[in-house]
Amino acid sequence: MATTQQLEDITTQVRRDILRMVHKVNSGHPGGSLGCAEFFVTLYNEIMDRKDGFDMDGIGEDLFFLSNGHISPVYYSVLARTGYFPVNELNTFRLINSRLQGHPTTHEDLPGVRIASGSLGQGMSVALGAAQAKKLNGDNHLVYSLHGDGELQEGQNWEAIMYAAGNKVDNIISTIDLNGQQIDGSTDTVLPLGSLRDKFEAFGWTVVDIEEGNNVDAILKGMAEAKSLTGKGKPVCVLLKTVMGNGVDFMMHTHAWHGKAPNDEQLAEGLSQNPETLGDY
């Protein structure tokens, strides 16, 4: 098991990857990516039970589905740095003829990705289907999924949330990136979500709060609790409170960097706040 320091060092490197990827092509989504860096690093390094290599069916291992596909930079960085494909390939993010599409796809056979996402609101249904396939296969591994908080405004989520409880899909842990921001402003100004705990509970889910969603120890603890609550007849939801743009001071607590790349000076500033740890690609 990695130490807290090791996980934080990986996270720092992932932040550098995110900044450099979006800067190079002057497009992409750094805000949500940075906010979820600790979560991804912890999930892939400590929480999920993963096999070596990649095959689509993923039988005998935990699966992860990214529903809010726009945060592909953090996903790609962590996939590369956990060995799914060469770290150098991060250089091709959003370029023509690349496997690292703006939003994750299976179309180019990128290892680690099992479904296209980008059009919001579809991932939970897919994750539930995969969780039910695991049950049919007698595979007692778990399915993890991640969703934006703004993304929950899409009605399909609530069809899936109702379905999950009604069908006792209890081998899924769906995490919500509760950063309180979306494109046009805060979720409160765009369309208030109300109490997500109350909503998920009313729909029959078990809810775990992670108040410090940018603290690897808090994530480890919260996800361990979530894991312990699976297999009890109810789907499990984790409300992960994060700071959008975390780790780069001028990107924090705002929707401004949802889908905007830093310029040269901003990149230098962001990188200086996150010194190289594992080595840049």
Partner: peptide, 8 residues
């Protein structure tokens, strides 16, 4: 639309 890719 460019860099966002095929999903969009």
């Amino acid at each position: 639309l460019g860099e966002d890719g095929a999903t969009h």
